[in-house]
């Protein structure tokens, strides 16, 4: 298994109160899976994403990525994991406004210690891959929402990540642009990319191959999505799964 979470919990302290964001999550994700994590707000799906993306550490339980135990790693070690194995796509793109598309995409490679030339070469290649050949020198404020998200996806892909983590990637986009971005995800998945996506929209989740429903910090259901046209997918079930 590429990703193996075992009995992961996350407890936050807010003042004297303790908030159990995750209540014993066990999850396995294999290579080239396309997983959608769904659930109402407060269900713990963002916390799960943060832990999967090595931005946060679980309070208890273990997280293995490619057989490597990440739970006891320090801040520097987790930074390297994020740098080399994980690509993030955020709802609000998170592009640096003063840098053009190329430089935004190069950003992770700066922290890999790569030289200028190879950074530039790889950034060009990956921008071509997401279909932004003509937009490389544009700054974020000169790009449309869909183009911005393509830049963000290119930035996530430039390190050839093991997992692509997307947090509501279409949340800030109109429906037509959303479909374009989702089509890009589908294409990446076909090329072998492992994708984990957080969403609360049925039609977005409809692009995935497996849907994990969360509620109150637990996995409520974990079902493969049956093949069919997007949107007509199974309405996330209440029965079965692992409560």
């Amino acid at each position: 298994m590429m990703i193996r979470l075992e009995n992961v919990t996350k407890v936050y302290r807010v003042g004297v109160e303790r908030i159990h964001a995750l209540n014993g999550i066990s999850l396995e994700v294999a290579e080239n899976e396309y997983l959608a994590v769904m659930g109402p707000s407060g269900s713990g799906k963002s916390t799960l994403m943060n832990i999967l993306g090595c931005l946060d550490r679980p309070t208890s339980g273990t997280y293995q990525l490619d057989g490597k135990l990440l739970t006891r790693m320090g801040a520097g070690g987790l930074a390297s994991i994020r740098n080399q194995r994980i690509g993030f796509v955020f709802q609000s793109f998170e592009l640096l406004p003063r840098l053009n598309a190329l430089k935004n995409v190069e950003l992770p490679l700066i922290y890999s210690g790569l030289g200028w030339y190879s950074r530039r070469r790889r950034a060009r290649a990956v921008l071509e891959r997401v279909g932004l050949t003509g937009r490389m020198k544009h700054r974020p404020n000169q790009l449309s929402g869909g183009e911005k998200q393509r830049v963000a996806i290119a930035r996530a892909l430039i390190v050839n990540p093991r997992i692509l983590l997307a947090d509501e990637p279409t949340g800030n986009l109109d429906s037509r642009t959303s479909e374009e971005i989702l089509a890009l995800f589908d294409q990446l998945h076909r090329q072998g990319q492992t994708i984990i996506m957080v969403t609360h929209e049925e039609h977005v989740a409809g692009h995935s191959k497996r849907i994990v429903q969360m509620k109150d910090g637990r996995i409520w259901s974990d079902l493969p999505r049956h093949e069919g046209p997007p949107g007509s997918a199974d309405s996330a079930g209440g029965e079965g799964g692992s409560p």
């Binding site: 994020r82 640096l96 922290y111």
Partner: peptide, 10 residues
């Protein structure tokens, strides 16, 4: 935050 997310060490 973004720089850290894409792998900048402290």
């Amino acid at each position: 935050g973004l720089r850290k997310a894409v792998g900048a060490r402290p």
